[in-house]
């Protein structure tokens, strides 16, 4: 029968993950998004590397999509004290908590580590008159209605435009931000000359930048990035530093030793060659940070996000 053969072929495929020296740490990783998205890919990459390297086994990934990850976050709260559960999260969730007025926030979860991220770029069509970020800022100040395309309202792209507006001296309440639901529509709007500029993660524009169809004016990284021939926003006098980072947290109320075990597992993951290879092929920037440094970072990021979202009028 057909169903059977395909099911068999698939289960054979699924079990190709090589067995390694298993330890007694078994983990469940929640991806608070649908399969295929950034958090899901991160979770599954963690699963593969941890199992292959024998850091933990078995590692199970499950999806709890919805509301920018806040549905998954609420579920994490229900598993208070579970030392074998992790959740992938990131800047988008920090923002969604604010914009959705979520009942749960990140103040009580147990931060484990920040793993990867991607910097944002501001691009214009190749035929655009703007050659530098300064040109764009000058034109923007003269005409607040200049259209910027990016992802949905309140997301990382929108935040970056808000930060850029502030740095350029443009009223954040008057800026003309055109949100798209993703799926490459931002790219299409810029390529089709329908907006003045577009904002997205570097990866989304990379091919077009290299092909010369788009001009990247600035990247939101603190310093120049290897292999990315785009000047930083900072180097052009705009003090903007924003990474669309992804990290890992555990449920509230786990014990100190449980937290230490999880942090150690992430440290091991980060140190492994398999993880370095994964970062390289996927073009993910290594933004590793664990333990108390990540605790502090998470708090600061929550404050900063709230401030930006207030400036652009999304949060009262």
């Amino acid at each position: 029968m057909n169903v059977k053969t395909a099911a068999l072929a698939l289960s054979a495929l699924l079990s190709t993950a090589a067995p390694a020296a298993a330890q007694n740490l078994n983990l469940r990783v929640m991806a608070p998004a649908s399969p295929g998205g950034g958090w899901d890919q991160t979770s599954r990459a963690i699963q593969t590397v941890m199992q292959d390297e024998g850091i933990a086994k078995p590692v199970q990934v499950f999806n709890v999509p919805g509301a920018g990850g806040t549905i998954g976050l609420a579920q994490l709260y229900n598993s208070k004290g579970d030392g074998n559960l992790l959740m992938t999260m990131g800047l988008v969730m920090v923002g969604a908590i604010q914009t959705n007025s979520s009942k749960v926030d990140l103040s009580r979860v147990t931060p484990i580590a920040r793993l990867t991220g991607e910097y944002e770029v501001i691009v214009v069509p190749a035929s655009s008159p703007y050659k530098t970020l300064g040109d764009l800022a000058t034109a923007w100040k003269a005409n607040n209605a200049l259209a910027f395309a990016g992802g949905s309202a309140g997301g990382t792209d929108h935040m970056l435009v808000g930060l850029f507006a502030k740095a350029a001296g443009v009223d954040t309440k008057k800026m003309n931000y055109v949100p798209f639901s993703g799926g490459g529509e931002t790219l299409a709007a810029v390529l089709g000359n329908q907006v003045a500029a577009g904002v997205a993660g570097y990866g989304e524009f990379e091919a077009q930048i290299k092909a010369g169809k788009l001009r990247a004016l600035g990247i939101s990284a603190p310093r120049a990035q290897a292999g990315i021939p785009v000047p930083t926003m900072k180097s052009q006098g705009f003090n903007v530093d924003l990474a669309n980072w992804r990290g890992i947290v555990a449920p509230p109320g786990i014990s100190g030793s449980q937290k230490a075990t999880l942090v150690a597992a992430m440290d091991k993951l980060h140190a492994s060659k398999a993880w370095k290879d994964t970062l390289k092929t996927r073009n993910w920037t290594d933004l590793y940070m664990s333990g108390s440094k990540f605790d502090v970072f998470l708090k600061l990021e929550a404050v900063r996000t709230r401030e930006i979202l207030k400036d652009i009028g999304l949060v009262k």
């Binding site: 490459g184 990866g203 092929t281």
Partner: peptide
């Protein structure tokens, strides 16, 4: 163009990126 116009295409794009490939003119 590396432009996904449907849900499946977006996932296929992710698959390209998994191999370090960037669909587009090049």
């Amino acid at each position: 163009l590396g432009l996904p116009t449907s849900a499946t295409a977006a996932i296929l794009l992710a698959a390209f990126q998994q191999y370090g490939l960037q669909p587009g003119p090049l």
